[in-house]
Amino acid sequence: MRGPAALLDGLPLPLRGPAWMIVACIAFALVWALIRAASADLHPFAIVFFRNLIGALIILPIAAGAWNPDTLRRWPAHLRRAGSGVVATYATFFAIAHAPLADVQAINFAAPLFATVAAALFLGEKLRARRIAALVVGFAGVLVVLRPGHLPMTPGIGAAILSALATAFSLITIKQLVGTDDPRLVAAFTFFIMLPISALVLPFYWAWPSPMTWLILVGVGICAVVGQLATSYAFRAAEATAVLPYDFIRFGIVAAIGWQAFGETVDAMTLVGGAVILATSIYLAYREQMAARSVRPASEPPIT
């Protein structure tokens, strides 16, 4: 068995990365819609547990074919990935249940910006003038979405900001792990480590799901696994600058779901701010790609 990557192997190579990113966008947009629906019956923190339980059961046979004992030697990095993932997941699920979906998505686009700052602080990466300028523009986009003094800083919006920060740390660790570990194992260890942590939290928010909510929770788990795997394969099949522009599709899907299913509206400032944030993230990815090429040995083949 060749794994999930075989599903799109028939596509020309330049199309595989964008195709996987579009799959990820659809999957994550559905996760958000299903979380909002399930939160009418369950607390968001209880939904986190079921997401991890169902996701772990689904990804176990997928990851089994990629098992490598050497992965265990990198368990500290997997713990860091799962730890930041726990914070990001709880914050995201709370934000989705308590804030407009489009606002949460726009703020979530800031995660790569925060990751760039975190890489400079914790990994010693240099912030040159162009990156600093891009960060300033990106954070200006965040302020356009938040509009301090105009929009109230609700717990849901605060959770969305915390989610973006935690996601930034996850991105850094994923970047380190996928260089040595199979993407299936990186995703699987996240589910496996997060499951017992969310089980400890569950008793404080427990309620029996209704039959319909059980179906929704299964959908959350399935879509979460598809989204994580598709994102990993997208970045493995193509450079970040080739696939990141397609991430804005998720913003459109999430905004449409919020409008059609939950009666939410999206104002022009949120659209503008989200576009600025995403454009800055794409530029930073481009600069990272150029920097990597400049230090690659002449004998090393380019990434394809």
Rank of each mutant, 00 (worst) to 15 (best):
A24I: 03
A24N: 13
A24E: 11
C25T: 15
C25P: 05
C25D: 13
C25R: 12
C25F: 09
I26H: 07
I26R: 04
I26Q: 04
I26F: 14
I26P: 03
I26N: 01
I26V: 15
A27M: 04
A27H: 03
A27S: 12
A27V: 06
A27R: 00
A27D: 08
F28S: 04
F28V: 08
F28Y: 10
A29L: 10
A29Y: 09
A29Q: 13
A29W: 06
L30I: 10
L30N: 08
L30R: 04
L30P: 02
V31I: 14
V31K: 01
V31L: 03
W32C: 07
W32G: 08
W32L: 08
W32K: 05
A33P: 03
A33C: 01
A33K: 03
A33R: 03
A33W: 07
A33G: 13
L34A: 15
L34K: 08
L34Q: 12
L34F: 15
L34D: 09
L34M: 15
L34H: 11
L34G: 11
I35E: 00
I35R: 00
R36M: 06
R36G: 01
R36N: 06
A37T: 11
A37H: 09
A37M: 09
A38N: 13
A38K: 05
A38M: 12
A38Q: 09
S39R: 10
S39G: 10
S39D: 12
A40Q: 13
A40N: 09
A40Y: 12
A40S: 14
A40V: 11
A40T: 10
A40D: 12
D41Q: 14
D41V: 11
D41S: 11
D41L: 08
L42Y: 08
L42H: 10
L42S: 09
L42D: 08
L42P: 09
L42F: 12
L42C: 08
H43A: 12
H43G: 00
P44Q: 02
P44G: 01
P44I: 00
P44E: 05
P44K: 00
P44N: 01
F45Y: 15
F45D: 14
A46T: 07
A46M: 08
A46P: 07
A46L: 10
A46I: 02
A46S: 13
I47G: 01
I47A: 07
I47S: 01
I47W: 04
V48I: 14
V48S: 14
V48C: 14
V48W: 09
V48D: 09
V48P: 07
F49G: 02
F49L: 14
F49H: 10
F49E: 11
F50A: 02
F50H: 12
F50C: 05
F50W: 15
F50K: 03
R51Q: 05
R51A: 00
N52D: 01
N52L: 03
N52W: 00
N52V: 02
L53W: 07
L53E: 04
L53M: 08
L53C: 02
L53R: 01
L53T: 01
I54C: 00
I54N: 02
I54W: 00
I54K: 03
G55T: 04
G55V: 00
G55P: 06
G55S: 13
G55L: 06
